[in-house]
């Protein structure tokens, strides 16, 4: 405590010294100028350059990331599109096949129907023809029977009944 008091009282700590101020100023300015030339310039340039390099690297990395993301998105889109396309094609194929099947089935049905119809027609014709033939035959037979009956027995009523019965029989046999 005492010592510091003495020091403060001495006062010479704060005494101005123009010589020292002069030398400090000169020295400092010279050091500043020389250092500016030999050290700060190159160092700061290098730092700046490195900073820029790092920044550009980061920028490039981000750009690459963005690009890759865009490509990925595009790929996904394309994939989705392709999926939809294939779905559509399959569905269309299915539809077409279905239609084809239905067409063919219909056509077949129609064909069959037609064939059945023609067969029926034919059968009907055959039947009619057969009936006509049968009628002729029956007429012949009837005539012949009549001939016989007439030849043997010309009792009209009896004979008529006989003929009728015979015809009746024939028709029942026929059916």
């Amino acid at each position: 405590m005492l010592t510091s008091g003495i020091i403060l009282l001495a006062g010479s700590l704060l005494s101005p010294n123009p010589g020292l101020i002069f030398w400090t100023a000169i020295t400092f300015v010279i050091v500043l100028l020389i250092l500016k030339k030999i050290a700060w310039g190159p160092i700061l340039n290098a730092l700046e350059e490195r900073e820029k390099g790092i920044q550009s690297s980061i920028d490039r990395a981000f750009q690459a990331k963005d690009e890759s993301e865009a490509i990925l998105r595009k790929n996904k889109e394309l994939l989705a599109k392709a999926d939809a396309e294939s779905d559509r094609i399959i569905r269309e194929g299915k539809d077409f096949a279905e239609k084809l099947r239905a067409d063919i089935a219909e056509k077949t049905q129609a064909e069959a129907q037609k064939m059945i119809a023609s067969a029926k027609d034919e059968i009907e014709q055959e039947k009619r023809r057969a009936l006509a033939e049968l009628r002729n035959e029956v007429a012949d037979l009837a005539v012949r029977g009549a001939e016989k009956i007439i030849k043997s027995n010309l009792d009209a009523d009896t004979q008529k009944r006989i003929v009728d019965t015979m015809i009746q029989d024939l028709s029942t046999n026929r059916n």
Partner: peptide
């Protein structure tokens, strides 16, 4: 003043080396 000059010399030596490296 001598100390100032020593400091300046030291500064100049150190930073001429560093600056040269850069």
């Amino acid at each position: 003043v001598v100390m100032l000059w020593l400091v300046s010399a030291l500064l100049l030596i150190v930073f001429s080396v560093v600056g040269g490296q850069y």
